[in-house]
Write a protein that binds this DNA or RNA. Structure first.
Lengths: 181, 181
DNA sequence: CATACCATGTAAGCGGTTACATGATTTT
DNA sequence: AAAATCATGTAACCGCTTACATGGTATG
């Protein structure tokens, strides 16, 4: 998923104005990803260039309606029907940071792990509280979003613990620089 | 983390050739993220432009050594000491796909969730098997990488189940399009 | 001798992101 | 009258990614 595909999906419900799309995107994602309005228009322009979206003429109030083309409909249908999960995770996140920290001499991996764990434990508390509060009113989207953040943070914490264990175990096996046995 | 910062971290161990960096990056990340060699050089060029890396002259065999500048050392130290986890997760992944699918009429969210779950259950099996095999030899990096993939996939599966539950519960409360009460 | 690998780079395009400009309408 | 919001857009930059070009060097 990406901004591109998100806008396509939202347009599948019918023609929309650019500004409307920003609001619907932020509502759908529970405010997790603030979206600059300008980006909506740059993205719509690229979608139009690629023939997936057709933008109408501005009306009396200067508003333009953007609609899916048949190709756009096919693109978003195909995307939604195609599951992911086999590709590598985002090249930007905890996983890469820790793996590189472990591999790079001159970086204390255990310190990095400790700092990341503290930060995530605090984040987890906040997000759990947020999820509890979001559960009181009935809005589905923010609830799901916070659930996702909680689940993600929990899995990161579990993995950090695992990393620490394995690093310590490896250090026990070869206590110093394992140059000579 | 990103390619930029990964290269900085690897350079913290001492000057390296571009080609070397590719190999070390892929080894550190257990082959999860293949890295085009060209990208190493484009990234090094930008790091040099920003004063974080200094590239030497090519030697007799045409090789160039790239080294951290003091600014580069400070940059990677600061980065490693600064924990993340409070920022929004990557704008590209399962979370956004499902949230948008739920919000977009004309997309069957339960179908999307079902397809993603199947795909991830298969991926989980493969990755668990990989992790078991990686456990037999002592290489730390691939083991940690596979552990991360397993943890991530598990948390995605748990979240997908939660989403389904909540969607069904919401449908039970307001069985049809909740236009009129 | 051909293939593979080491090694460095360039060109081009893509989507993401922000900052800024402009004007109408609505709210305070 | 001022401030906020609606609404559309443009310019510019960024890093990521791939495809391609160019040679040297080892290996079969």
């Amino acid at each position: 998923m990406s901004i591109r595909e998100s806008l396509l999906a939202l347009l599948a419900a019918g023609p929309r104005h650019g500004y409307q799309l920003r609001g619907e995107f932020e509502a759908a994602t529970g405010g997790v990803w603030p979206l600059n309005v300008g980006q909506v228009y740059t993205t719509l322009e690229r979608l139009e260039r690629d023939g997936l979206v057709a933008g109408g003429e501005p009306d009396a109030e200067g508003r333009r309606l953007f609609a899916l083309t048949p190709a756009g409909r096919a693109a978003i249908d195909g995307f939604m029907r195609t599951p992911g999960g086999r590709d590598a995770p985002s090249r930007d996140g905890l996983m890469m940071k820790v793996l590189i920290a472990v591999a790079a001499p001159g970086v204390d991996a255990l310190e990095v792990i400790g700092a990341e764990r503290s930060s995530r434990m605090a984040a987890l508390q906040e997000r759990r509280r947020g999820a509890r509060e979001a559960g009181l009113n009935g809005d589905l989207a923010p609830r799901l979003a916070l659930d996702a953040l909680v689940a993600l943070t929990e899995s990161e914490l579990r993995w950090l613990d695992l990393c620490e264990e394995r690093i310590l175990a490896a250090a026990r096996t070869s206590p110093d620089t394992p140059e000579e046995s």
